[in-house]
Amino acid sequence: MTLSGLHVPLITPFAPDGTVDLPALERLAADVLDAGASGVVALGTTGEPSSLTPAERASVLTVLADVCRDAQLIVGANDAGALRAAPASATAALTLVPPFVRPGADGVVAHLTALAAESPVPLVIYHVPYRTAQPLTADAVRRLAAIPGVAGMKLAVGGIDADTITLMADPPAGFAILGGDDAFISPLLALGAHGGILASAHLATAEYAALTRAWEPALGHRLARLSAALFAEPNPTVIKGVLYAQGRIATPDVRLPLLPAAPESVRAALDQAGQGWSVSTGAV
């Protein structure tokens, strides 16, 4: 199995009473799939999973497993317990490189080898060194790609660095490289990435899906401006503000430690989203 195309890491919408708005979540998932996404990510960092109770996380997985019966479902899971809780129908688990402790490449390989051996689904490793503080060379990524049960990587290194170019010049066979830095997805696709896991694709889903299927530079440049506006404040605060302004979710609420996006950031993103982009079932 080689993952490809667009996967949308879904927000967790909250109702006015503070509970998880499961009907809104179901609608958002259906919207992005109808617009051409290959699948969704449940309980990724965009979904604020650390702020959810175990019961809330379980309800999110139940809803999205049902919506994704004919689509790919990737589940955010960083330990053995979370991996075992993944629905049987899940395509893969998105598993973070160990954050903060900086175990080195050998420690990362050993840790993910152990998790892959316990996981009932393949792993997609989430490499985001500006959050984890753990860099990995291209050779280290190739070692990870050789682990049985590892299907690919969400690559989000904050740009296109030398290791990315080295990796993309000779990518591991059968290993899906999915871009995870929304503003840099176009150049990464140009280098040969298989697709992207892109929070920005809550908006302009059809265009992001088209870009991941067939890279086109002018479209990539326009979507980079939209992504920059949507990530002007901590993710997913601006995305939630825009979805709320469009009437697609009941509140723009996030849970601590996040705070709602400033109105001017939401307005700027709405300006970008209003420039002829389609969203889910219609036009902005």
Rank of each mutant, 00 (worst) to 15 (best):
Ala29Phe: 06
Leu136Gln: 09
Leu43Glu: 02
Ala183Arg: 14
Asp253Thr: 12
Val284Gln: 09
Glu118Leu: 14
Thr212Val: 05
Leu188His: 11
Ser4Ile: 03
Gln72Cys: 13
Ala92Tyr: 01
Arg102Cys: 07
Leu123Ala: 04
Gly282Ser: 12
Lys240Glu: 11
Val284Gly: 13
Gly220Lys: 02
Arg69Lys: 13
Gly247Ala: 01
Ala190Gln: 14
Ala162Cys: 11
Pro16Glu: 14
Val97His: 08
Asp182Tyr: 08
Pro148Asp: 15
Thr205Glu: 04
Ala183Gln: 15
Ala273Glu: 13
Gly274Asp: 05
Gln134Trp: 00
Glu264Lys: 12
Arg255His: 11
Ala183Asp: 12
Leu83Lys: 05
Leu83Trp: 06
Ile197Met: 08
Ser89Val: 05
Glu48Thr: 13
Val254Gln: 11
Leu243Arg: 14
Ala29Asn: 02
His7Asp: 00
Pro49Met: 02
Pro98Tyr: 12
Arg143Ser: 14
Pro99Trp: 10
Gly241Asn: 09
Val40Gly: 04
Tyr244Ser: 09
Ala214Ser: 14
Val150Tyr: 07
Pro16His: 12
Arg255Pro: 04
Arg248Ile: 00
Gly180Pro: 01
Ser59His: 15
Leu6Gly: 06
Gly36Ile: 09
Leu144His: 09
Asp21Val: 09
Arg255Glu: 07
Ala210Arg: 09
Ala77Asp: 00
Asp66Leu: 11
Val254Arg: 04
Ala140Asn: 14
Pro260Tyr: 12
Ala116Tyr: 04
Leu198Cys: 12
Leu189Trp: 03
Ala105Trp: 08
Gly174Met: 13
Leu115Asn: 09
Arg57Gly: 08
Leu189Cys: 06
Glu56Phe: 00
Gly220Pro: 03
Val41Trp: 08
Tyr208Met: 05
His194Trp: 03
Leu25Asp: 03
Ala88Cys: 01
Thr91Asn: 03
Gly247Trp: 07
Leu25Arg: 06
Leu115Gln: 01
Ala90Pro: 00
Tyr208Arg: 02
Ser186Asn: 15
Ala283Arg: 13
Ala55Leu: 13
Thr137Leu: 08
Met168Phe: 14
Leu258Tyr: 09
Ala250Gly: 09
Ser4Gln: 14
Leu191Thr: 02
Arg225Met: 06
Ile249Trp: 01
Lys240Asp: 02
Ala262Asn: 06
Ser38Arg: 14
Pro99Thr: 15
Val101Phe: 13
Ala145Tyr: 07
Asp17Thr: 11
Ala146Gln: 07
Lys240Ile: 02
Thr251Phe: 08
Arg143Val: 01
Val75Gly: 04
Ala232Phe: 02
Gly276Asn: 05
Asp31Met: 08
